[in-house]
């Protein structure tokens, strides 16, 4: 079971690393930003698996904070990317 969970972790991390291509190449800011947002989702998944694997229920809190706050950057992006607004 632990091996399976570890392999899941590696797959999730690889999905983040693959998404980095979009962050590097862009070209539009929205593409980079949304790639980073998807990493937030992957990070939540990684934390959930790790909490099981490391027997650390506190990691569920970390996952919750990630899930809640990833959107703050996105709202910031949407508001601040529209030019006229100060």
């Amino acid at each position: 079971m632990n091996t399976f969970l570890s392999l899941t972790l590696i797959a999730l991390l690889l999905s983040i690393l693959a998404g980095l291509i979009r962050v590097f190449r862009g070209p539009a800011p929205a593409e980079r930003m949304l790639a980073a947002q998807l990493f937030g989702t992957a990070a939540v998944a990684i934390l959930l698996v790790l909490s099981q694997l490391m027997q650390m229920p506190a990691l569920l809190d970390v996952a919750m904070v990630f899930a809640l706050l990833a959107a703050v950057t996105l709202v910031g992006f949407v508001v601040l990317a529209s030019r006229g607004v100060r």
């Binding site: 962050v23 990493f39 990630f66």
Partner: peptide, 19 residues
Amino acid sequence: FAMIVLFVVFGLLSALAWV
């Protein structure tokens, strides 16, 4: 802008490293 996004992702992976 890419620099900022990369820094945010850097922070995200750092959090996993602390875990």
